[in-house]
């Protein structure tokens, strides 16, 4: 599904190398987790994959189902099936959540040569999906993420994911700022989307999210590289011993 080879990235504004050769392959239907300390490059990886400005790819490649995504515009990557659940979902005053969702769904459909969703069909689908995420009609009417609590913002991300039905979902610290109940709700939303060949890359600091979203593979990232790969037990090891041992081991 997602194949990253020797990806090297630096910040455009300062001459600072963030990713120093990342190799990662996420197979269809699998859930991979990336853990790592602050500043290891996890969020940079998610931004580079989704096409945010400000990063320069200095080497390597990233493909989604064999297609080079690094040359695509962010909207093309989205239409190709890539989805980033933001660590900090952006507030957009003045744009209604429903307008936003519908515009996004139909833009992707159009890009894929599919017919646009009618407003009645859209309403039906969005209400159903919102309900399972405990997103009420009021939240759907409000401007995108404006006045949302941390938990509401993250649920809104998952709603977008559910509506857009991407193939490859990247969750960037989706657990940050969530209490236990909210995390469960978000995890349930993600789990409901698992399967059908859909892959996930879950970026997190802590093991606790992985109790709810069980990964197939766990990677540890440090200093711009993946330094260790293993099964779910690797996450538990980090939980007990921290990152220091692993990093030392690598050095």
């Amino acid at each position: 599904m997602l194949e990253i080879k020797n990806l090297q990235v630096k910040l455009e504004e300062e001459d600072k190398q963030i990713l120093k050769g990342v190799d990662l392959t996420v197979e269809p239907g699998k859930v991979h987790a990336i853990m790592g300390p602050n500043g290891s490059g996890k969020s940079t990886l998610s931004y580079v994959l989704s096409g945010k400005d400000g990063y320069e790819v200095t080497g390597g490649e990233a493909t989604l189902e064999g297609e080079d995504i690094l040359e695509m515009e962010p909207e093309e990557r989205a239409a190709a099936g890539l989805f980033l659940a933001f660590q900090y979902p952006v507030e957009i005053p003045g744009v209604g959540n429903m307008t936003f969702l519908r515009t996004a769904v139909n833009a992707q459909r159009k890009a894929r040569g599919q017919e646009e969703m009618s407003s009645t069909e859209f309403l039906k689908v969005v209400r159903e999906k919102a309900k399972s995420l405990k997103i009420d009609a009021e939240m759907l009417k409000r401007p995108v993420n404006v006045g949302f609590s941390g938990g509401e913002k993250k649920r809104n991300e998952i709603l977008q994911m559910a509506m857009l039905e991407p193939k490859m979902c990247i969750l960037d610290e989706t657990d940050s700022g969530l209490d236990v109940d909210a995390m469960k709700l978000v995890a349930d939303g993600v789990n409901a989307l698992r399967g059908e060949g859909r892959s996930f890359l879950v970026i997190t600091h802590y093991q606790r999210l992985l109790d709810h979203i069980k990964p197939d593979v766990v990677h540890i990232m440090s200093n711009g590289r993946i330094i260790k790969t293993g099964g779910p037990e690797l996450a538990l090891e980090v939980e007990h011993n921290g990152y220091a041992d692993l990093i030392e081991e690598q050095a």
């Binding site: 096409g51 957009i92 744009v95 936003f100 996004a104 995108v144």
Partner: peptide, 30 residues
């Protein structure tokens, strides 16, 4: 135009031009 908002919209598949329009309409909403 708010670059963060623009990227967020584009990351959801909204083409740049339409995303700019949405943000423009949002700007005059008040």
């Amino acid at each position: 135009i708010d670059e963060e908002g623009l990227f967020y919209l584009r990351a959801r598949g909204v083409p740049r031009g339409i995303a700019e329009d949405l943000l423009t309409i949002a700007f005059i909403a008040e």
